[in-house]
């Protein structure tokens, strides 16, 4: 390798960009411990009072519960459908594989706002009652492409001869799927599930248009921002940052293990 005069500049730039990406999150966390009722700089005093207030808030418990219901249902449905779709496209897609995959990924090309209002219009046409169910339907549309993407990436490294061998030994399609394909896909399944969970757990725009009376956690943050900003917003935001960060770490690690495993 030649000596590279550009490298230090690129490194410094990258550090600056990372600062830009993380600084706002740190600022929110910092303000969550601020004693003053008004979020202004510089910070005055240290307190955990906003966290205490937050935990005492029963609306928060309900919102958290609703978010969990939605996220878990979304994960279950979109992981099952997405893995099925990825395997299906991989096995039977043939020359339509690309087109099928593109179709499945289309929702990624559509702003969330439009996914949300399109669903609202659709529900309106059929006079459907808005509830967590209508939210889940939207979240699955939103997360499905990511699941298919992650599973398809894993399948690129899949040796089809293993399935062929199982077939020759007389195993049925679903047995093969359960005994051969699924174990191979396990890391991708975990990563996809965590990714859908986080996407769903943090989603506000689609939820905003498709929910009825039930608030999810991001909807509660949105509601706080609309109807009364108190430092509790900082606390709840900080908690979501920490939780999401933890999920991201686990997801990335399991995905990484998957890739290391598939590299030959």
């Amino acid at each position: 390798m030649r000596r590279d005069p550009v490298k230090p500049f690129l490194a410094a730039w990258t550090v600056l960009v990372l600062l830009f990406l993380f600084a706002p999150l740190f600022v929110v966390a910092l303000f969550s411990f601020n004693e003053s009722a008004i979020s202004r700089f510089p910070i005055r005093g240290f307190t955990l009072a906003w966290y205490q207030k937050l935990f005492a808030n029963t609306a928060l418990h309900e919102a958290l519960w609703n978010s969990l219901i939605v996220a878990i249902a979304t994960v279950a449905i979109s992981t099952a459908l997405g893995i099925g779709a990825a395997v299906g496209i991989h096995r039977y897609g043939g020359r339509y594989g690309g087109a099928l995959r593109s179709f499945s990924l289309t929702p990624m090309m559509v702003p969330r706002l439009i996914i949300g209002i399109a669903l609202l219009t659709f529900y309106n046409l059929f006079q459907t009652n808005l509830s967590l169910l209508t939210v889940i339907a939207g979240h699955v549309v939103m997360t499905l492409p990511y699941v298919i993407l992650i599973a398809s990436a894993r399948l690129v490294g899949f040796d089809k001869s293993m399935e062929e061998a199982a077939w020759d030994l007389g195993a049925g399609t679903f047995t093969i799927f359960r005994e051969v394909t699924l174990p191979f896909l396990k890391p991708a399944v975990i990563a996809a599930a965590l990714m859908s969970f986080t996407l769903s757990f943090d989603e506000v725009v689609v939820t905003f248009f498709t929910t009825g009376n039930d608030n999810t956690l991001p909807m509660m943050i949105w509601s706080m921002l609309r109807f009364g900003i108190t430092p509790e917003v900082n606390s709840i935001a900080t908690l979501t940052i920490v939780a999401s960060g933890a999920f991201a770490l686990v997801a990335e690690m399991s995905l990484r293990r998957a890739q290391v495993g598939s590299t030959r």
Binding site: G98, A99, R101, S102, F103, L105, T106, M109, Y146, L149, I150, S152, A153, R154, V156, G157, M195, E252, L255, R256, Q259
Partner: peptide, 18 residues
């Protein structure tokens, strides 16, 4: 999202929907 995942996002043409 990892490298392999991202590769799949690369241009494959917009979908045609039936």
């Amino acid at each position: 999202m990892s490298r392999e995942t991202m590769n799949l996002l690369l241009p494959s043409g917009m979908s045609r929907r039936g």
